[in-house]
Amino acid sequence: MNSGIAHEPVGFIGLGNMGGPMAKRLVDWPGGLVVCDMRQEATQPFREAGAAVADSSKDVAATARVISITVLDDAQVRDVIAGPDGILQTAGPGTVIAVHSTISDETAVELGAECARQGVEFVDAPVSGGAPGAAKGALAVMVGGSATAYEAVREPFGCWANLVIHAGDVGSGTRMKLARNLLHFVSFTAAAEAQRLAEAAGLDITALGKVVRHSDAVTGGAGSIMLRNTTSEIAPDDFWYPIMTHVRNLGEKDLSLALGLGDRLGIDLPLARIALDRLGTGLGVGTNAATGQEHT
């Protein structure tokens, strides 16, 4: 552990469904923890556990070197950082402000510039894994900021995250989170489409859900194909070509069969049609005409 960081207090502002479990794992931080939340019932357990409780964001910044923020939206983040009682009122040079709320990447860049004018480091550091991941210390956190700021936050973040990624400059953490959540919620929409097909076929859709969760836990789900460092077309002599071609062939076959079932049952499957049309291209190996043209 970097003793310079470990012996500095860390701060946590916002102790809700995500912030509370994250901050709880910092109670034993060697340099001490100072927390802030508008609700006394949220701060009381931390006070009882030995953490300091601040009345405002600027009071947190008076002592903490690394300050995490988990509030609702862009407006609240701006107020916590730059408002009349905000962190920048008291933060000294070298303080690192970390925003875990999912905000606009433009807001992150603007706040980063505002902090820099006072010699304060800013990182946008959204998380993935939900409250259960926070409670287990098993979140993924995507850090957008300087290399210096990343080094400063790596150890305290490691108390509540078991994957800490340096995504790039300020704004990059948010952009990575938005890409990750695009996959998340498109997948939810696809899950709803799959349930409609299964229901129309007279199947138990709760049993289908069990199968999906079981098999995704084994295979890794959609993340299992996210292994290349580019989305460009794959050359036939590339290591990945036979792997992605195999995935495409299986996918196009199964999507075609699902669409055929949907046609017979009178169930429209628009996402499946898009997937059949774009799967091979997305994988970088093009469409297999033998299986990919039946329902485009």
Rank of each mutant, 00 (worst) to 15 (best):
A6N: 11
P9N: 04
G11H: 01
F12W: 13
I13P: 08
G14C: 06
G14R: 08
L15G: 08
G16R: 01
G19C: 07
G20K: 09
P21T: 06
P21M: 08
K24R: 15
R25F: 09
L26M: 15
V27N: 08
D28G: 12
D28M: 06
P30N: 12
L33C: 11
V35E: 07
M38T: 15
E41S: 13
T43Y: 01
T43I: 10
T43N: 00
F46H: 03
S57D: 10
T63E: 13
V66S: 08
S68D: 04
I69H: 03
V71T: 13
L72T: 15
D73I: 03
I87D: 12
T90W: 03
T90R: 14
P93F: 10
P93T: 08
G94H: 11
I97R: 11
A98H: 02
V99Y: 02
I103T: 14
D105R: 05
A108Q: 09
V109L: 12
V109P: 01
L111M: 13
G112E: 11
G119F: 09
V120A: 06
E121T: 02
F122T: 08
P126Q: 09
A131H: 01
P132I: 09
G133I: 05
A134H: 12
G137M: 11
A138L: 02
M142Y: 14
V143N: 12
S146E: 09
A149Y: 09
E151R: 15
R154Y: 14
P156Y: 10
P156S: 10
C159L: 10
W160S: 07
N162Y: 06
L163P: 00
A167N: 07
G168D: 03
G168E: 04
G171Q: 12
R175P: 11
K177Q: 12
A179L: 13
R180K: 08
R180G: 08
L182T: 14
L182R: 04
E193Q: 10
A194L: 06
A198T: 07
A200F: 05
A201E: 11
G202H: 11
L203M: 14
L203G: 10
A207P: 00
A207L: 15
K210A: 14
V212S: 02
R213F: 03
H214M: 08
A217Q: 06
A217N: 12
V218G: 01
T219R: 01
A222L: 11
A222G: 06
R228L: 14
T230G: 01
E233S: 14
P236T: 13
D238W: 01
F239L: 13
P242M: 02
P242V: 04
I243P: 00
I243T: 13
V247D: 00
R248P: 02
L250S: 02
S256W: 01
L257V: 15
A258G: 05
A258I: 06
L261N: 04
D263V: 00
I274E: 13
I274H: 07
A275C: 03
L279C: 04
G282T: 04
T287V: 15
N288C: 05
H295D: 09
